[in-house]
Simulated scan of single mutants.
Amino acid sequence: MSVKKKLGMGIAAAALGISLVGGATFAYFSDAEETNNTFAAGTLDLSVDPTTIVDVDNLKPGDVIYREFELINDGSLDISSIDLTTSYTVDDANGDNVGDMGEHIRVLFLENGDKTDWNPIEGWDYNDVVSETTLADLQEMTPDAVEDLESFWTWLFGGTGEESGLVAGDSDQMYVAFEFVDNGEDQNEFQGDALQLTWTFNAHQTEGELR
């Protein structure tokens, strides 16, 4: 190989080496900023006051029981709906029951007072989320206790009550009336019996939104 050719190859190799070294050690200006981010979940916390709505004895057919209670949103999130589920058991004192005592206990009304409206055509438009229903039938239903059931006339003229749902930190006043129905027939099988009613209020969040 000629000296000229060897010299050319050496220069090329040196240039390649410099290029590689330069690529690895090339310096440039830079700056970095750190962000601190938090994803904190809200709370859904529903309470009922009082927790025992009805505790009465010595009932007889024809008796009516009226009570008041509150649904309270103690959480940080708004509630869109509160579904009511019903279950009960009957303690048969004499073991002679043929019928279901739950068919003889009627919910005359369960009214959400905060959603009740007034309009110039019908007057008070009571927001009865449950009306004229036996406990036996109510087992098959899941009414929304905080739904605004405004009538056409209330919608037309504008209601005075709150909209559906229960905002954080707020409460709804509830009114309920039960009747031990006197059906005019022999109801002796229920003497001494006790019906244990469980009402469960299931709260649901509002829809997600762009934050």
Rank of each mutant, 00 (worst) to 15 (best):
G102N: 04
A93V: 01
P61I: 04
L71I: 05
D63I: 09
D117K: 05
V48I: 15
D125T: 10
N127F: 10
D74E: 15
T52H: 03
V129Y: 07
R106M: 07
N112C: 03
E70Y: 13
D92C: 03
L46H: 14
D128A: 06
D49A: 13
T51F: 00
E111S: 07
I121P: 04
K115H: 01
V129P: 04
P61N: 07
V64Y: 08
V107P: 03
D78S: 12
N94S: 10
E68R: 06
I82S: 14
N58C: 06
T86N: 12
P50D: 11
G123H: 03
G95I: 00
D91M: 03
A41I: 07
L46K: 11
T133E: 14
V56N: 06
E70L: 07
E111L: 04
S81H: 13
N73E: 11
I79H: 13
V64C: 05
V48G: 08
N127P: 07
N97W: 00
L110A: 08
D49E: 15
L108S: 03
S81F: 08
T51D: 11
V98D: 13
S131R: 12
D128S: 05
L59Q: 05
K60E: 14
D57N: 14
T86D: 03
N37I: 15
P120F: 09
Y66K: 14
V107R: 02
G75Q: 06
I79M: 10
G42P: 10
G102E: 04
G42V: 13
S47M: 13
D49I: 05
I105S: 04
W118N: 12
D91K: 07
V90E: 07
T133N: 07
V130T: 08
T52F: 10
D57T: 15
E68W: 02
K60S: 13
D49H: 09
T38P: 00
D55V: 06
V107E: 04
K60C: 03
T43I: 13
T116A: 06
V54N: 06
T116I: 05
G123T: 08
L108A: 05
L59I: 10
L59K: 00
N94R: 06
V54R: 00
N97M: 08
E132V: 02
F109V: 01
Y88G: 08
I72G: 03
P61K: 07
V54D: 03
D83I: 01
K60L: 02
N73D: 13
R106C: 01
S131H: 05
Y88K: 08
D100E: 03
L84H: 06
N73F: 09
I53M: 08
R106G: 00
D57S: 15
D96I: 02
P120M: 14
S81K: 15
L110G: 01
G123D: 09
G113S: 12
D57I: 05
G62H: 14
N73I: 01
L77G: 02
I105N: 01
G123P: 10
T133R: 15
